[in-house]
Simulated scan of single mutants.
Amino acid sequence: MARQALVAARAQARERGAAAQQRKQARRGGLRSGARSDGRDPLPLGAAINRLITERGWETPAAVGGVMGRWPQIVGGDVAQHCEPDHFDEESRVLTVNCDSTAWATQLRLLAPQLVARLNHDLGHGTVKLITVRGPGGPVRRYGGLRAPGSTGPGDTYG
């Protein structure tokens, strides 16, 4: 008789536990993290970043950003010492590169078609359409030997 009472008590406890579990799942929307993974489980950092990049559509900017970080490996050490990528316009797919001398700017303009091919091979076809090369900026133009502080040049005296 004691054994039957124990079996009945266990069955009632199981039923109460199952009902409580169902209520709990209903409150949480039916989702629970268990033996199998779902969308709420933690991810490794790399996988979380890759998922974010894919969800937001940032594949091209992320790939081009990687190119800017690997610029010396892509173009070579000599060119990388004198030329550095400035920015990438995603709409027109133009990479702008600044050079420290006009000779290196000319050299890079001659190498631009090969660099575009190499970048597109690395990033995917059509990622970069054009490389714009800019040389060094000229010195600030000053007129006359003496300048008054705050003047804007010869035009500031004529009203």
Rank of each mutant, 00 (worst) to 15 (best):
V97K: 00
L43I: 00
G39W: 03
S37H: 01
I49Y: 06
H82W: 08
W71Q: 03
I53N: 02
T106S: 11
S37N: 01
G66R: 13
E91S: 14
V79L: 12
A80K: 06
L52D: 04
R51Y: 00
S37L: 07
V67D: 08
D78I: 12
G46K: 12
A47F: 02
C83R: 01
D41L: 01
I49P: 00
V79C: 08
G39V: 00
T102K: 14
L95R: 01
D100C: 04
P72G: 11
P44H: 02
P72L: 11
T96H: 11
G77E: 14
C99V: 06
E90I: 14
P85F: 04
G76Y: 10
V79Q: 06
C99G: 02
G65N: 09
G65F: 04
G76W: 09
A105N: 07
H82R: 08
A105M: 02
V94M: 07
A103F: 03
E55S: 10
V67R: 07
C83I: 02
S101N: 06
W58Y: 13
T96L: 04
L43G: 01
L95K: 02
D78C: 14
G77Q: 15
W71R: 05
G57W: 12
F88Q: 05
R70F: 15
S92W: 13
P42K: 01
S101H: 06
P72F: 10
P44F: 09
D41I: 00
G76R: 10
N98R: 14
T54V: 13
R36Y: 02
P85C: 05
W104D: 05
P85D: 04
E84T: 12
Q81R: 09
D86C: 13
V97W: 03
M68L: 09
T102S: 15
R93D: 07
H87R: 11
D41P: 05
A63T: 06
R56W: 12
V79H: 07
A47I: 02
W104F: 02
E90S: 13
W104K: 07
V79T: 10
Q81E: 14
L95H: 01
V79A: 12
D41S: 01
E84P: 03
D86T: 10
C83M: 03
R70N: 15
L52N: 03
G69A: 09
E91I: 15
V67Y: 07
N50E: 13
S37G: 00
